[in-house]
């Protein structure tokens, strides 16, 4: 029993770190534009696929680090471009909702492209680090790496949003979009930048977590679902919420798989989502806010 509990916690927290990173990435874009980028799950999988395709079988640590930066940069640019295209037809991203369809469309396109290139099978990415033993549980090193990445991204984002002028301006967009416009902030540019940041987070996460995520054409949807639930539980637009929401979802997913079986995992998570929305719609860390209409 203790061994099973250890597995649930170690793996749950590791998976949770991935969900937290997806939730962080959700939040950055949501803060600046009110848009939920539903293509994020497949963008993560795409980064994993790039890791699998680019890394040679016995990848060295230095090459691995270089490839991580390359994939990170590629997806930063790709998602920034996606953001620019998503925003282009909108006068106001908070009052018009064509992004619902356009972000979904990008998700479908990525999924279909992976299917064409790779076929319906999952691929595995080579990794330069051997597994480790935590609480007696053999754990792929990727879980540790992705947890470290979460801490790094969280701290970096906090500093960026509080200390730099661009970051403060992005937080300002989240607080009052009309005032931000009147102030003369370059709203569109800031929104595209936040899409780019989200792409960087997803790109590096997908690369670092490549050995432990499912790199298949249809797996994006489960990541988007878990990441979204993590973001909602923590409170949409709140970074602390994303940090805490991910591990909650990860551990819940692992324990429900253990107790009821893997096929009930999504049922439990969705029930959790509904329960949170009913009891505390603003999430654990979210605050109620007023909206100018």
């Amino acid at each position: 029993m203790a061994y099973e509990l250890a597995i649930i916690f170690v793996r749950g927290l590791g998976l949770g770190a991935i969900y937290s990173l997806i939730a962080l990435s959700f939040n950055v874009v949501y803060m600046s534009s009110g848009i939920l980028n539903f293509a994020q799950g497949n963008i993560l999988v795409l980064a994993g696929l790039l890791a699998a395709l680019l890394s040679p079988p016995e990848v060295s640590v230095s090459l691995w680090l270089v490839l991580m930066l390359v994939v990170g940069c590629m997806l930063t640019l790709a998602v920034a471009a996606q953001g620019a295209m998503t925003l282009a037809p909108l006068r106001s991203s908070t009052e018009q909702h064509s992004w619902l369809v356009s972000t979904m469309a990008v998700s479908v396109i990525i999924g279909a492209s992976i299917l064409i290139v790779q076929g319906p099978f999952a691929v595995t990415a080579p990794y330069p680090f051997p597994g480790v033993r935590i609480l007696g549980v053999r754990t792929p090193f990727a879980y540790l790496a992705v947890t470290a990445l979460l801490v790094l991204c969280f701290v970096a984002l906090q500093l960026f949003l509080r200390r730099t002028r661009t970051g403060v301006a992005i937080s300002a967009l989240a607080q009052d979009l009309e005032l931000a416009r009147a102030t003369g902030l370059r709203v569109r540019l800031l929104q595209v930048v936040s899409f780019g940041i989200s792409g960087a987070i997803l790109g590096v996460t997908g690369f670092v977590a490549a050995p432990v995520i499912s790199i298949a054409p249809d797996s994006g949807i489960s990541y988007i679902l878990s990441g979204f639930i993590a973001a909602v539980i923590g409170g949409m637009g709140n970074l602390y919420g994303a940090l805490v929401g991910g591990p909650i979802v990860g551990v819940m997913a692992m324990s429900s798989a253990y107790l009821f079986g893997g096929e009930f995992q999504n049922l439990v998570l969705l029930t959790l989502l509904v329960a949170v929305l009913m009891v505390r719609p603003q999430g654990l860390f979210g605050r109620m806010s007023t909206r100018h209409v």
């Binding site: 403060v168 937080s171 300002a172 607080q175 009052d176 009309e178 005032l179 931000a180």
Partner: peptide, 9 residues
Amino acid sequence: DGHRVFPDL
């Protein structure tokens, strides 16, 4: 109008 500032900055 309405003494609008960014409340959480």
